[in-house]
Design a protein around this nucleic acid. Structure first.
Length: 581
DNA sequence: GCCGTTTTCGGCCCGACTGTTTTCAGTCG
């Protein structure tokens, strides 16, 4: 079974379930029933295994939030791409209503109202109704709502959606530092999905501990990045930046910083599960702490560690807080020990001025030393990548010599000679095999002919790997965050070949990629494959992108043993390419 | 619709902010 070429992939199943939840909500269905479909959506979305395989095994009802009824729906969806309840809702309601849910400030109740009263069933009709001043005729809506709705529709038309994690991270760090510099702020933290390391970010969440919230909120809305204020109260302010990203600021007393950070980090699913569990134990959890029933003084609030302890749980890292079984694992002290940034000894993927990088071997080595690494691998492009000034065999031979020379000259870090070699359309490698054998580390990547049919693409990758010369597959799916989808091939077959041939899979941390993503990394690990982190840096600052790869590895529940970069240089060189040893 | 170390029935997280209201519903995270 394949990931990319399956007629129904997990995302398709999740989309149908989500549409059911949304249409049910608009139709005024029982909210807990709606939540059941939302829960099932999340479960399917974050599976690291193909749902098709689970259906084949008859294990559907073993999944969290999926009972007999939704299991039946899923089997129908597999057969027909839809199911009875989905069909029925679509017949009764207009699918254009789903777009209207994207308008902030407009929820299911108001959508139902404008649908029933004005016959408005899509964004265009909504816009016309707002412009004509007809929304204010409805109970509970007024002129201000009309104004907001129109502004939201205009924003949606610009296509502003979720931002890639690395981009949002940089924006958030700048805002954090500015808030941190205010005299009234005691400490500042980035929370939300950024802290959990989700690969794309809907908005930025910032938390400030302070005894004087007023000046903090005033200074926040006056920051140069801020375009408009969406809402502002005593403890919470929301703004939109000029770049379109929404930022929520919450201020709290320092005494409750831990519980507030926990609350503001999410996810929603983690909170619901945690709070439901607490309630059964006679406890209440909010952003102000853990409370015993009917008491106002928290038994834990200062730190997240205290909060989990008070609930009888071992500490759960932010990257795991997705409601994917982390709470029951924490109950049994059964959580994995996750890989830590400090355990990373080296970086195996970077470019220099020899091809399309901005800095020299020496400059990259110095920057890597400053990051505390023991080793780096220089991996410039092969000639097929013309736009990147890829190397001919002659140039690569010279480059190896220069890298060896630099390695001998520069103290305090090992510099290994490598290459990012193209896996060409027919699966052959874009470099002399003798030179590839001479290199210490070879990243094999696809940079052309992305649209081959899945079988051909699979065979292409397998052919490249069977040379025995590849250390790892670089950015294995080729997806660009918010851009193109990955190329389509039989992921399972390739992972199995990786295990058999001793080829690692890269977790590429560069800004636009995060490839493999957490789900596929987890899947590859479960199938026994080795994983290796690469920054794919094209400059000294790009080296820092490796942290994003670490974070995705943590989201995949991976420990140091699963990651080759935690090995010493000698161990690393023995880990792959068994045929050459 | 799902679920169970009190339950196979009766529950299902918790609080802040807005707009349109005279005490609160709707939305959001």
């Amino acid at each position: 079974m394949t990931v990319w070429s399956s007629p129904m992939n997990n995302r398709d199943y999740a989309r149908v379930l989500q549409e059911i939840a949304q249409l049910m909500e608009i139709s005024g269905e029982n909210r807990f029933k709606v939540r059941a479909f939302e829960n099932a959506t999340r479960t399917v979305e974050t599976l690291s295994e193909d749902l098709d395989q689970i259906i084949d095994r008859g294990d559907l009802q073993g999944l969290k939030g999926i009972g007999a009824s939704i299991a039946n729906d899923l089997r129908q969806i597999r057969e027909r791409g839809t199911c009875d309840i989905h069909q029925m809702l679509l017949e009764r309601l207009d699918p254009g209503l789903l777009d209207m849910l994207k308008v902030q400030g407009l929820g299911p109740k108001r959508i139902k109202l404008v649908y029933n009263e004005l016959g408005v069933s899509n964004l265009n009709a909504l816009k016309e109704a707002a412009e004509a001043g007809r929304l204010r005729e409805l109970k509970g809506l007024g002129a201000k709502t009309e104004e907001k709705v129109l502004a939201e529709i205009a924003r949606l038309a610009q296509g502003a959606d979720r931002a890639p994690l690395p981009q949002a991270r940089r924006v958030a760090e700048s805002l954090r530092d500015q808030l941190d510099a205010l005299p009234q702020s005691i400490r500042v933290a980035i929370a939300g999905s950024l802290r959990r390391g989700r690969e794309t970010i809907g908005d930025i969440d910032l938390l400030v501990a302070t005894d004087e919230p007023g000046p903090i909120h005033q200074a926040f809305v006056a920051l140069p990045e801020v375009k408009e204020t969406l809402a502002s109260g005593d403890t919470k302010t929301s703004v939109r930046l000029h770049n379109g990203i929404q930022v929520d600021l919450r201020t709290v007393k320092n005494e409750v910083f831990g519980s507030a950070l926990h609350y503001f980090t999410g996810s929603k699913e983690h909170h619901i599960e945690l709070r439901t569990r607490a309630k059964r134990q006679g406890l209440r959890v909010s952003e102000y702490g853990v409370f015993k029933e009917n008491e106002d003084t928290p038994i834990a609030s200062r730190t997240e560690e205290e909060l989990y302890e008070a609930l009888g749980l071992s500490f759960i890292a932010p990257e795991l807080r997705e409601g994917r079984g982390e709470i029951s694992a924490a109950e049994k002290s059964d959580l994995p020990t996750l890989v830590e940034p400090e355990q990373i000894r080296g970086d195996v993927h970077m470019h220099t001025t020899e091809t399309d990088g901005r800095h020299s071997i020496e400059e990259m080595a110095d920057a890597a030393k400053a990051l505390g690494y023991d080793y780096i691998v220089i991996t410039d492009h092969s000639q097929a990548v013309r736009v990147a000034n890829g190397m001919t065999p002659e140039r690569f031979g010279d480059h190896i010599a220069r890298i060896r020379e630099a390695d001998g000259r520069i103290q305090g870090i090992r510099i290994l000679a490598g290459i990012e070699v193209d896996i060409l359309k027919d699966g052959s490698l874009d470099m002399d095999h003798d030179l590839l054998a001479e290199a210490d580390w070879v990243v094999g990547s696809v940079h052309s002919h992305f649209n081959l049919d899945p079988d051909t693409m699979t065979e292409r990758l397998l052919t490249g790997m069977r040379t025995g010369l590849l250390s790892c597959l670089g950015h294995p799916t080729g997806r660009i965050l918010g851009g193109r989808n990955g190329y389509r091939y039989d992921f399972d077959a390739v992972v199995e070949a990786c295990v058999e041939l001793g080829v690692a899979l890269e977790l590429n941390g560069s800004s636009g990629r995060l490839d493999l993503n957490a789900e596929l990394a987890e899947k590859a690990h479960r199938k026994g494959a080795m994983l290796v982190l690469g920054s794919d840096a094209h400059s000294t600052t790009g080296l820092k992108d490796l942290r994003f790869a670490v974070q995705q590895a943590r989201r995949a529940w991976l420990g140091p043993d699963a990651i080759l970069n935690t090995l010493t240089v000698d161990e690393l060189l023995k880990a792959t390419r068994p045929a050459l040893r």
